[in-house]
Structure formats: C-alpha cells, structure tokens
Design a protein around this nucleic acid. Structure first.
Length: 425
DNA sequence: TCTGGGGTCCTAGGACCC
DNA sequence: TCTGGGGTCCTAGGACCC
C-alpha cells in the first residue's frame, strides 16, 4: 500500500501556525509579485475565490469579504515543509517527497496491520510537531492514493484520511471522482475524454487500454492500469538529478534600462550556479531570455532568447555570469518595456565528470575558483543569501519583486523570531 | 499599475550513420 | 503496385504536475 500525505491549504496553514488570528478567517496567499491567488483557506474557497485568479481584478471582492491577503513567503513554507517531511520520515522511512506539500509513503514494511490506525497516528504527530494539518489517502497504487486523498478532503472539510482497501471502496471512490480530477488528466485530456462520454474516474478505469494508449500515449495507459489497482509507479525515494535548472522572475515594474536588466540576469545566474553546486553538478548550456508584458497589447511586444554553449561545463558563478552577460547583449533591444527575464541551465553533468577542453581549460584557475566559491557558499549559508556576491549583481534591485504583505521569516531569520508577547488571542 | 515559478515525460520528424 | 534495413541523436511541441 501507498499513502499520499498532503498538507491542507499548505501556505495558509504555515501562516496560521505563527499567527493564530488567521484561524477561521478567509485567507489567500498571492504568487510572486502579488499577482495571482495560489493558496486559499477553506473559508476563502467557500467564498468562491478561484485558484490562479489575478488579485487586481478581485480587489473589491476581497475587501468586501474582509479576506486576509498575504504575499507568499517561500523561506517560511520551505522550512515548514522540511519539518513536515522530516517528521513523516521518522515515522515511515520509505518516503518520497513529491512536492512542497505532499509526500508518498511506502507502507509495505510497516508494522501496522491497520493502515487507518497508522493514518491517525501520522496526522496526530505531524500536527503536534509542526502545527500543520494533513490529509492522508491510502491505496494500492499512487494514482489510487491520490484519488483516496481527494475523496478524504471532499468528505470532511477538516481533512482526515481514507483508505481504499476493498473493491467496493475502490469502485465507490472512482465513481464519485470526476475524470478531470484524476492525477495526470489536465484540460486537454478532459476535453478528449468528455467527448467520448468518459466522465468519471470509474469510466476511465473501464476504458479500453488500447484506445487510451493510442490517444494518450503510454502515460495514459499507465494511468488506467493504476486506476485498476495495477502498480506502474514505484516509490522514488532517491531524488533524481535535475535535467534543467531555471531561475526567472517577473519584475515589480517594467524595466527599460539595460544596466538594470544586467543586474537582474546576473542575480538569476548566480542563483542557478548555486543550485548547480548544491547538487554537485555543472552545466554545458546556458539559456538567457527576457520578454515584454503580453497583457499589454498597447505596448510593442518582444521575446528575446539566446542559448549559449559553454566551452567546458561549469558551475562557477563568475564564469556563468560572464556568459550570461554575453547572451543578454545579443538579446537586448532598446525601447521595450521588459516584464520578465530568466536563466536556464541544461546539459547538466556531475561535477566530477566534466569533459575538459584541450585549449581553454585552465586547471589551476578552476581549482582557485572552486575554493573561492565553496567559501562564498559557506558564508552565504551562515550569514544570509548574497552577503557576498559578484559586483555585477548590483545593489540597486529596482527590478525587485512586489511583496507588500509578506509575513516574517519566523523560522529562518534570527531578527524575525516570534516573541511570546506578540500573541494576543 | 496590475496576470507565478519551476519542473517532468512522451512523441514525431529530420538529419545523419553504416 | 510495392520504396532497403536498422540504427542514433537532436529538436520542437504537446501534455501534464505542484
């Protein structure tokens, strides 16, 4: 059996742990730049506030209903996620972290003969240690565990658990799950399936596998098999090395100046280099892109993009920034209002398997860089991000995100520690 | 004024090899 | 009526996830 543990309204729950005044009130969390709604409390869901809705279009509605609107605080959510995952891992060692708020557990080797008892225990301990409420779905395949989790959430607003351990329960859960809510079915496949009269997960489970394979590839075939209880996806407890790493942001204000764009792109590149070093990898390709605001048809539109092959794979902040600046120079055109820029690195290889180049490879310089960067990572780890940085990243940050209502970094910054006197119930 | 960010997998088709 | 056969690598595009 697999269990899918999913944190309820995760970002809102994180905020509530440190600010109990948010309990029982409608709360929404906005995406970067305070753009769209990306998390909602149950009270906000009940008001009909949609996931992904642009905040500026809902201003009045949010005010009218006295909805608490907050910017997202990823330092907090990331840290709370680690705590939840660590707690789960202590209870069930075979764990796959599937996303910031979800984990699959492999229950095969657990001493509990009664999975529901285990679910109750997991909920209780995670709640006690972290303050985060979770919902648990248990079934014989990952896809069915997803179905069970969804079913549990629908059944009780508070979120609890559901275990698909008999054929009757399986059929029932599938029958009441809309096909669009199946893991792996998005907008396009929903359209296709609805047109064939396939409306529920049960309909899909009973569909001819050959037809599904023809129209939805092997991914669809596996989905159907998993819905029937035939396991196609095992637990992946070892995180796979990334094939591409991307850092990109929308700007708080449109950017027209080359030097500001340079600072932003240099900062994104530094972030990508950090991520590469963290997984002991280096990249062969660097992709620079920047574009204008497509929601402004009154302004001239432009999408600039350039991929550069590095002579030797690298994870050096200095080297990658130099390459990125060359790319940006080729891409930048004067006279546009840039909305967003980013860096993507790919062609990723393990750091210790970098193919050297006969002519441009300077072993000594690389070794010096490596030492300097290790020191830089240690300093920034201890003293905070960008305590030491490359000058090109600048001090200006006028391209900076809008984050008008962000909570404090309660768990990751000493100056933001909660004081007990802050809590007035 | 204003609409997120970061990923994965699969397939088809073209270019090329012997 | 009847194209040779068996491969690899790369890219673009489409679908999906949270």
């Amino acid at each position: 059996m697999f269990a899918l543990v999913d944190c309820n309204n995760f970002y809102v729950s994180c905020e509530r742990v440190f600010d109990p005044k948010l309990e029982n009130r409608p709360v929404v969390i906005l995406s970067n730049n305070d753009g769209c709604v990306i998390a909602r409390s149950n009270e906000a869901k009940a008001l009909g506030i949609q996931m992904g809705a642009p905040a500026f279009l809902m201003q009045k509605e949010l005010e009218k209903n006295e909805v608490v609107v907050m910017s997202s605080n990823y330092a907090l959510y990331g840290d709370m996620s680690n705590r939840v995952m660590q707690t789960l891992h202590e209870l069930v060692p075979a764990l796959e972290v599937y996303s910031i708020d979800e984990a699959f557990l492999d229950l095969r080797n657990m001493p509990y003969s009664d999975p529901e008892r285990l679910a109750r225990r997991l909920r209780k301990i995670v709640g006690h240690y972290t303050g985060i409420p979770v919902t648990i779905g248990i079934a014989s395949t990952k896809t069915l565990a997803k179905v069970a989790n969804r079913y549990a959430k629908k059944r009780t607003a508070a979120g609890a658990y559901y275990c698909i351990d008999t054929d009757a329960k399986q059929e029932h859960a599938l029958a009441v799950t809309a096909v669009e809510d199946v893991w792996g079915i998005g907008r396009q496949y929903t359209k296709l399936l609805e047109s064939q009269g396939i409306h529920t997960a049960l309909d899909l489970a009973l569909t001819d596998v050959a037809w599904v394979k023809k129209h939805m590839s092997v991914v669809g075939e596996r989905m159907v098999r998993e819905l029937c209880g035939q396991c196609c996806y095992d637990l992946e407890d070892q995180p796979q090395p990334k094939k591409g790493i991307c850092t990109s942001r929308s700007f708080g204000h449109p950017v027209t100046e080359y030097s500001i764009l340079q600072e932003a792109v240099a900062t994104f590149t530094a972030r990508c280099a950090e991520k590469l070093r963290k997984q002991n990898a280096a990249a062969n390709l660097l992709h620079v892109f920047t574009f204008t605001n497509r929601h402004r048809p009154d302004q001239p539109q432009y999408y600039g993009s350039k991929v550069i092959q590095l002579p030797v794979a690298s994870n050096s902040t200095m080297e990658l920034i130099q390459v990125a600046m060359r790319g940006l120079e080729l891409v930048f055109k004067k006279g546009y209002y840039y909305k967003k820029a980013g860096i993507m690195v790919s062609g990723i290889v393990p750091e210790n398997q970098v193919q050297a180049d006969l002519f441009s490879f300077d072993q000594r310089k690389r070794e010096l860089d490596r030492k300097a960067l290790a020191a830089l990572d240690r300093i920034n780890q201890r003293m905070g991000r960008d305590t030491v940085k490359v000058a090109m990243q600048g001090y200006n940050r006028s391209w900076h995100l809008r984050q008008e209502r962000r909570s404090r970094c309660y768990t990751t910054r000493w100056t933001d520690l909660l004081e007990v006197g802050d809590l007035r119930f």
